[in-house]
Computed example of a mutant assay.
Amino acid sequence: MNYKKDVPVILPKDIFIGHPKAPVTLMEYGDYECETALHDDLIVREVLQRFPGMVNFNYRHFPQLRIHQRAHKAAEAAIAAAQAGKFPQMHDLLLHNRRNLGTASLAFYARDLGIGGINFLDSLVTGRYGQYVQDDLVAGIKLGVKEAPSFFINGVKLEGRITVRNLCEHVEAACRKKSRYVHKML
């Protein structure tokens, strides 16, 4: 990976899983050490499968440092992996290994994905992507996020715990709303 200062950084707000032009954007403010992170991700994956081409997913970082000291560095590793086009793979590894997010483990995961090495480790040690994690925190707070996970559909905050059922209902409602808007424009 090349970390020259003049190379633009792919920001978390610009990293999507799913169809890039989908009419519905599901956004999560999450913490890789959160107890429910993997469970919530399985729900998100199910919804993406049920609505192919209709939903994309944007993961934003909201590490709760008072209780999860390694979540910030894990978020930095996810951003670093995104620079090499490996965000979904790193995201998956971080979620499956939420109890093993020390710097050495993060470097091992990166090496496993073929993006490790001195540049990746250097980016973690120096906090190269730390400001982007902080930017996500600030953006989340401005949107009313108080804890992770917090979910939004097309910018509207969802209240309560998500389930496959209620998230599908929210996606269907957003699709209907988008369809009415497009119909009015025609």
Score class of each variant (00 low, 15 high):
residue 2 N to Q: 08
residue 8 P to V: 08
residue 8 P to K: 11
residue 10 I to R: 09
residue 12 P to V: 00
residue 13 K to V: 14
residue 14 D to H: 09
residue 16 F to H: 02
residue 17 I to C: 02
residue 17 I to P: 04
residue 22 A to Y: 13
residue 22 A to R: 12
residue 23 P to R: 06
residue 23 P to L: 08
residue 24 V to Q: 07
residue 26 L to Q: 04
residue 33 E to W: 01
residue 34 C to L: 11
residue 37 A to H: 02
residue 37 A to F: 07
residue 38 L to W: 09
residue 42 L to D: 10
residue 43 I to G: 00
residue 45 R to I: 09
residue 46 E to P: 01
residue 49 Q to M: 14
residue 49 Q to C: 12
residue 50 R to F: 13
residue 51 F to T: 02
residue 58 N to L: 06
residue 59 Y to Q: 08
residue 60 R to I: 03
residue 61 H to D: 03
residue 62 F to C: 02
residue 62 F to Y: 12
residue 62 F to L: 02
residue 66 R to P: 00
residue 66 R to H: 04
residue 66 R to F: 08
residue 68 H to S: 06
residue 70 R to S: 14
residue 71 A to P: 05
residue 71 A to M: 03
residue 72 H to Y: 10
residue 73 K to T: 10
residue 76 E to G: 10
residue 81 A to K: 04
residue 82 A to P: 01
residue 87 F to T: 01
residue 87 F to L: 09
residue 87 F to D: 02
residue 89 Q to V: 05
residue 90 M to C: 13
residue 92 D to R: 10
residue 97 N to T: 08
residue 98 R to K: 14
residue 99 R to E: 08
residue 99 R to D: 11
residue 100 N to A: 14
residue 102 G to D: 15
residue 110 A to V: 09
residue 110 A to Q: 04
residue 111 R to N: 15
residue 112 D to R: 13
residue 113 L to A: 07
residue 113 L to I: 08
residue 117 G to R: 13
residue 120 F to C: 11
residue 126 T to C: 06
residue 126 T to I: 05
residue 126 T to G: 06
residue 129 Y to V: 00
residue 130 G to W: 11
residue 132 Y to V: 03
residue 135 D to G: 00
residue 135 D to R: 01
residue 140 G to L: 04
residue 140 G to N: 04
residue 141 I to P: 01
residue 141 I to C: 05
residue 143 L to V: 02
residue 144 G to C: 02
residue 145 V to W: 03
residue 146 K to H: 06
residue 147 E to H: 13
residue 150 S to Q: 11
residue 151 F to P: 12
residue 152 F to I: 06
residue 154 N to F: 08
residue 154 N to L: 09
residue 157 K to L: 07
residue 160 G to C: 00
residue 160 G to F: 00
residue 162 I to H: 09
residue 162 I to Y: 11
residue 165 R to G: 03
residue 169 E to P: 03
residue 169 E to A: 14
residue 169 E to W: 06
residue 170 H to I: 01
residue 171 V to F: 10
residue 173 A to W: 05
residue 173 A to H: 03
residue 175 C to P: 01
residue 176 R to S: 11
residue 176 R to W: 08
residue 177 K to L: 04
residue 177 K to W: 02
residue 177 K to Q: 07
residue 184 K to S: 06
